[in-house]
Design a protein around this nucleic acid. Structure first.
Lengths: 132, 132
DNA sequence: GGATATTTGCAACTCAATTGCAATAAGCAT
DNA sequence: ATGCTTATTGCAATTGAGTTGCAAATATCC
């Protein structure tokens, strides 16, 4: 229906997207800024993230401590819902997507869902092993 | 085991708790400050909320836009987990607890859970009816 | 009631995020 | 390729949520 034109492909956008796609954990704005190490401006990173979100290239999640983190979209269904679980580890402080863990639940009559945030905080498998 | 002594019962604490217990939706710090209308200081509200959390009188949730909201604890189990669903309505902008909606899911081998944040954004039953 | 430790209010501060604006660069047509 | 138009960038300044230190006030315990 609506023809969507992606935003321009700039240096900043490519760098940020490459970073997020290369990471297997969710990155915060601060993580990205540090990794880019002055290659582009703080404000630009915010704006690039907004555009990547609009382009459906990445998705945003709010960690349990209120920090915004960004993940590449993998295996997103057409309506771009992100039903899977996000795991936030107390030990390594990393947030990762557990793509295959989909919660099942029943919304009461009359409610409709557009977006979902499902985050579990605890100890991830890696940290559980290391602390043995 | 550990004998826990609750914090002092002050005017500020009583007012804030009464407000939260009287509301059927989650309140933000800003909501509380506005409702109290200068009766106590901004900073005091933050500190009172922290104490109420420690006393297990209320629980905190991070809304999908990153805003902290506070709800009275009703029917909390002993380990004070808040497994139920939080619904964030796009229309009335209110967050409410759906206490009876508990998601079921299976954490992969090796992961352990301490806390859960499960928020759905959409249109609540009330708003769905009004917009008919 | 009086001593003591907690709580409050104030001012100052930190940190994430946003805005306005001028300079720059991507994309399109020629 | 060249230039034109519009989106994007960088900078400086600003907003807003939340925190901290400290002196004054006030719950709680005796």
């Amino acid at each position: 229906m609506a023809v969507i034109k992606n935003s321009r492909s700039t240096q900043a956008k490519q760098s940020v997207l490459a970073l997020i796609e290369g990471a297997n954990v969710a990155l915060s704005h601060a993580d990205i800024e540090e990794a880019l190490n002055g290659k582009c401006n703080r404000v630009t990173i915010y704006r690039v993230l907004d555009r990547l979100l609009e382009d459906d290239k990445i998705h945003k999640l709010v960690d349990m401590d209120g920090v915004n983190k960004y993940m590449a979209c993998v295996a997103c269904n057409d309506d771009h819902l992100h039903h899977h679980l996000h795991f936030s580890c107390e030990q390594c402080e990393q947030v990762s997507c557990l793509h295959h863990v989909i919660p099942s639940f029943q919304l009461p009559e009359g409610y409709s869902m557009h977006e979902l945030n499902f985050t579990v905080r605890g100890i991830c498998a890696d940290c559980a092993v290391t602390s043995l």
